[in-house]
Design a binder for these strands. Sequence first.
RNA 1: GGCGGCAUAGCCAAGCGGUAAGGCAGAGGUCUGCAAAACCUCUAUACCUCGGUUCAAUUCCGAGUGCCGCCU
Length: 309
Amino acid sequence: MLKKIIVIGGATCSGKTEISVELSKLFPVEIINFDSMCFYKYFDIGTAKPDNETRASVKHHLIDVKYPDEEYNARMFSEDAAGLIEEITSKGKTPLFTGGTGLYMKSLIYGLSPIPEIDKSVYRRKAVELIKKIGITAAYEKLKEFDPEYAGKISSCDSQRISRAYEVYSATGHPLSYYLAENPFGRPLYDYIYFNLNPPRDYLKSRITERTRIIMENGLVNETESILNRGYKADLKPFRSIGYRESLMYLQKEIKTENDLYLKIVSSTVKYAKRQATFFKKTENAMEVNFTDLNRKLGFIAKTVEGFL
RNA sequence: GGCGGCAUAGCCAAGCGGUAAGGCAGAGGUCUGCAAAACCUCUAUACCUCGGUUCAAUUCCGAGUGCCGCCU
């Protein structure tokens, strides 16, 4: 008997937080975040984390669980999620997953291939150095030799995936595709119900515009500086995320004015929302919710959840 | 008022005597431990105006217009 979970996915600004909180008033749930940047402490304003009041009203998990220089990834998430599902279910409640990171949702529902833990400080560094040394094209040619199957699936310019393939092969002696074959993402691990919040693009754009304005007013640039002042380096992962990356450029004078900064963040966010929407609509059994009116949205989702539980 | 520079798609920008790169923006997509990342595909009859030279001008010449510098 698979455990029941509720998943609410959707692009940034699609209203996931709001609907999750409303649902928590109707059903005994605890919320588990799967926005990859909300795991990190101190990155508060730019990630638009739920505020303290919201977090006091219903239990939220996996927010602020890592320091900015700590490793967190899809594997760790799926393990944490499995533990939380166990814990919440045993209390007679239902886990409600809310977030926008497609890969994390996928690894939650289907699990990941059993690739052994790899020491990144050794093997990833080696992979990155090799690519830097021989060039991405030559690296891809070599990948074709030891893992032609995976090479065939990715672009010859995809530095991250080429690097990953190298790190897996050099650490384990097996090509990445060897492991991928073991879990073709066929069987869900949970009895899940999944809502894809997908409002019309224009509506989403106007929400993004508005939220970016608020984020900047709330002091995004100051927050970026204050994280740096804590001693965290600008090349850490969360600094590569939308809003922070641009703020860093602004602080380094690569972006000249606050208005340019604002426009750049809006533009990056809109593109990101597009990528998210592409990912989420592909998920099996997705129930697309495109109303913009909260009551209609909630009405539909609540009714569906009621039938599911 | 004088001198010089510039004028190419929504924006930036290369270039050439034989009708023109690229980037951004736009649209769609990919995704198995970096995923707010990384990557892929598609997309525009755009050369300021008017004359001249030439087989042929966006490219050369002249005038005009506009913008930007410098000088008075």
